[in-house]
Design a protein around this nucleic acid. Structure first.
Lengths: 195, 195
DNA sequence: ACACTAAAGCTACATCAGTTGCGATTGGAG
DNA sequence: CTCCAATCGCAACTGATGTAGCTTTAGTGT
């Protein structure tokens, strides 16, 4: 998305400043309150420059998202698939519950609904997350807790889906019990050989 | 949301015209292309009137959503819980796949992410849908296909969640097989007594 | 039928997101 | 060290979105 004609130097500094400002603004005012002008002012980069390189707010978010995709996240290793799956789903839940991270994460989802670029970025983000998370399922297969033919990614999807569904589609609250139950349901399905 | 000082007459006609125009515009240009001015022009209602009563595009969508919530939808009755659940999930899938309905339904989800009003409207919409869909689970309990203590709403949530997750969060395609598998997974979990 | 008033229409205006053209900097190649 | 191309800063501008004040229309109650 970004040009790499001049990877080091001012361009890189500008990009960093804008990314940082985008995340900060998102954290404070959320997606609805994110404007190009505010990001420009906060970053000390001129408005025109931001428009030229990022185009609009969804461009800003797509870029910040690329950044976030790189950061690995702490996959649990509790020794049992039940504990690991529950841990992952709780991680998802708390990520949106947290007052600092919540608005930022939500903004990613919201932006992806409005811009194909952001959708692609979010798709890549989740592909990475699925890949990392699937490790707990592979370990479970190795331990003999799950049949060898399970679709490791699908187990993750089914486990986390109800949390996202409640948050972003049905707009219902998500308790820790809800999260645990979603993980357990995915596990039961995997054990039954459906996934 | 709307005043009912003068339920019959011009106000009602205006409201109908605007609702109709909103749905038509959504179908043609999607959420991103929905503007108050276009809806005003299409409906023959003056721009200022639309702003006064609906405020902005999310207001328009919230109102259209209230309308959509009333329409009942064709819950399947295949005789088995497996067939019914699969039918419901396919109904969800095809609702977003359809070139006419897809953009409208997606707009509802998108709008609910940006406006508390739309979120409330969508919440009510899904509460109604869950209630109607839960009937297939109750019938299954009556037939003895599922244990009596299942959370009938949760079975529906877990069944449809993966479809929404793929569509609106991970931005992955959703095949008919994916949909069927999601239904089967929910069913397996319910049979295992997890839901 | 008539008066009353809520609500819609209309014009003009204000505001803000996004664009354009040009001159000033900056980083990197030779 | 010098030059050149890429990128940034700046100010002025455009168009779209939303608002204010006032007039007109049309339901509703007597």
């Amino acid at each position: 998305m970004q040009s790499n004609k001049r990877p080091g130097g001012r361009s890189a500094r500008v990009r960093d400043a804008v990314r940082r400002a985008t995340l900060a603004e998102l954290g404070e005012h959320g997606y609805a309150g994110l404007t190009v002008e505010n990001v420009a002012e906060r970053s000390g980069v001129h408005k025109t420059t931001v428009y030229r390189r990022w185009g609009n707010v969804t461009g800003l978010i797509s870029d910040a998202l690329d950044l976030a995709a790189d950061e690995p996240w702490p996959i649990p290793d509790t020794g049992s698939i039940e504990g690991d799956l529950r841990g992952i789903v709780q991680l998802v839940r708390s990520g949106f519950d947290d007052p600092g991270l919540g608005p930022v994460s939500s903004a990613f989802v919201a932006a992806a609904m409005q811009s194909p670029d952001a959708a692609r970025a979010l798709h890549a983000f989740f592909a990475a997350r699925h890949e990392q998370s699937a490790e707990v399922v592979r370990r479970a297969v190795t331990r003999g807790e799950l049949p060898g033919h399970v679709d490791v990614h699908e187990v993750i999807r089914v486990a986390v889906a109800p949390v996202y569904y409640r948050l972003f589609v049905a707009h219902e609250p998500v308790s820790e019990q809800d999260a645990a139950r979603a993980a357990d349901a995915a596990l039961a399905a995997a054990r039954a050989g459906v996934l």
